[in-house]
């Protein structure tokens, strides 16, 4: 039937090359399937869920540990401890004050104009908080993050990082203090609110009688600072 007159070896060689290419292509296709981006996405989302669970568990642990009260007895020491916790932001506080809600501008930026002017930046928020502090705010939180002595407010891409926790607009600032003073400090003519509203940034101030400012949830540990031996002047 089939008769190869000559060149049997050359046919075998060609078939060998073909087989080589086939195997190579097969392996490449397998590799590509194994590295498809959606598998990466799946893996990452699974890890995210896991980490979130871990975080929730740890937060619960922190809450339960913070509820452990020192043994009563030394009333003076106890009172001092309470005072310190109050001042350092380790306890949730409640009282009269204002709730300020800030959101990005709804105005469409005109062509050629800098879009950055219409979104909230860290300095906008810092101005508001500075004004609140100047007006005598005693406790402030941004999107549920209590501001403490070491808190930062910083742009982190399109989001804002407070206490190293990122959040996206709208930002809700809660401040405890004399609500009338706080409100008028923000609404001052030529003040923060007016400046920001030029760019269409939505700023809403609401006075309330029972504002709850949450406690600081993160870890507090000094790894560099130590107590100085003698009081430096």
């Amino acid at each position: 039937m089939i008769t190869y007159k000559r060149g049997h070896l050359s046919i075998a060689f060609v078939c060998m090359v073909l087989g080589f290419m086939l195997a190579l292509q097969f392996r490449i296709a397998m590799d590509q399937k194994a590295s498809l981006p959606y598998q990466r996405v799946e893996e990452l989302s699974a890890r995210l869920i896991e980490t979130e669970k871990e975080r929730d568990a740890l937060q619960e642990k922190v809450a339960s540990l913070q509820q452990v009260q020192p043994a009563p007895g030394n009333t003076e020491g106890e009172q001092m401890l309470r005072e310190l916790r109050l001042r350092s932001g380790l306890t949730a506080l409640t009282g009269p004050g204002v709730i300020v809600t800030i959101d990005d501008s709804k105005i469409k930026s005109k062509a050629g104009e800098n879009q950055n002017l219409y979104i909230i930046h860290d300095d906008d928020l810092l101005k508001v908080i500075n004004e609140l502090r100047a007006a005598g705010a005693e406790a402030i939180s941004v999107n549920g993050q209590r501001l403490m002595a070491t808190s930062e407010i910083r742009c982190a891409g399109p989001t804002l990082s407070v206490n190293n926790v990122r959040s996206a607009p709208p930002y809700e600032i809660r401040a405890i203090g004399d609500s009338a003073t706080l409100e008028s400090a923000l609404r001052m003519r030529g003040g923060v609110m007016e400046t920001l509203q030029v760019w269409g940034i939505q700023l809403e101030v609401k006075a309330a009688q029972d504002i709850v400012v949450p406690a600081y949830k993160g870890a507090s540990k000094f790894s560099f600072a130590k107590e100085a031996e003698e009081a430096a002047s």
């Binding site: 075998a12 078939c15 087989g19 195997a23 190579l24």
Partner: peptide, 18 residues
């Protein structure tokens, strides 16, 4: 015919090992 098949097999093995 047989030679061609043998060549194909050798090529496949080489390709998967390479």
């Amino acid at each position: 015919m047989i030679l061609a098949l043998v060549g194909l097999g050798v090529g496949l093995i080489l390709g998967s090992l390479c």
